[in-house]
Amino acid sequence: MATVADQHETDTVGNARADARAQGGKAAAAMAYRPASSTPYPPPGVDADTLTWAETVAGGNYAHKVLARGTRVRLEDVTGEACAHVLAYNALEPWERLNVADTVKISWQAYLGTGHPLLSGDGRVLATIVSDDSGRHDALCGTSSARANQARYGDSAPQGPSPSGRELLTLAAAKHGLAPRDLPPSISFFKGVRVEPDGGLTWTGSAGPGKAVELLAELPLILLIANVPHPVDPRPAYTSGLLRVHAWRSRPTAPGDAWWDAAPEARRAYLNAADYCAARGL
């Protein structure tokens, strides 16, 4: 029976080198596009030359990037089965990071949507949700753990068929020198949960294929994304579809912009971020 090894002539270093090099230039459903301007899926209305990140993330996989302040990031749920579990850090002082409790409490709103500032625990806005046509997001349930995925799907390992979000975020974080201590609760996009009057959770699931969320980086960010099923997704099968990520140069929220004055708490969060950046010469 033919094996994969039969398709490769790798008996000498020269042959192995030729074999390896022959693999370059192939395409895959999930891959990074370099340069970013070469993406087959440029976001509508965006000059491809301004793109700084273009990548399709497989279900059960992860992505990460360091982003300049003023970068706009678009996440698209290609098939309606993506769930983007996101963590954001101040790239210059990563112990400043997403604080989900402050993000919902200070905005007086548990459900994420357009205009919601994503706050750190240090009184600053890390990013703003500047666009959203999904409306199915979650800031309460975090991501999946090894323990939960082993119980639900039989496996949780990053190399296995049903990786947990926690284990993928651990890997993404490690690539920026960050350790498990650096993983606070995360938020997720494209799968919704609502809270009942007694505190119980109701799954609202996906808004369908092609929905997108855009985030605007208000500080220099390390962004980590795990694309895995939501922890309370009731379906027995590990269901996780393609997530498309594009980012491009834009500018941070400034006085006069709608988000700056949308709420007094948000305005002071933008003021504190602007103050930090001015002092650091950013």
Binding site: V100, A101, L140, C141, G142, T143, S145, A146, R147, A148, R166, P180, L183, P185, S186, V195, D198, G199, G200, L201, P231, V232
Partner: peptide, 26 residues
């Protein structure tokens, strides 16, 4: 872990019987 506790118990409020879970789900 707040989210592991909420997702694990299926409720955002903490009451008698709520298991306070860790970042590893324990």
């Amino acid at each position: 872990s707040v989210p592991d506790t909420i997702a694990g118990g299926g409720n955002v409020y903490v009451r008698t019987g709520t298991v306070l879970r860790s970042s590893l789900g324990n």
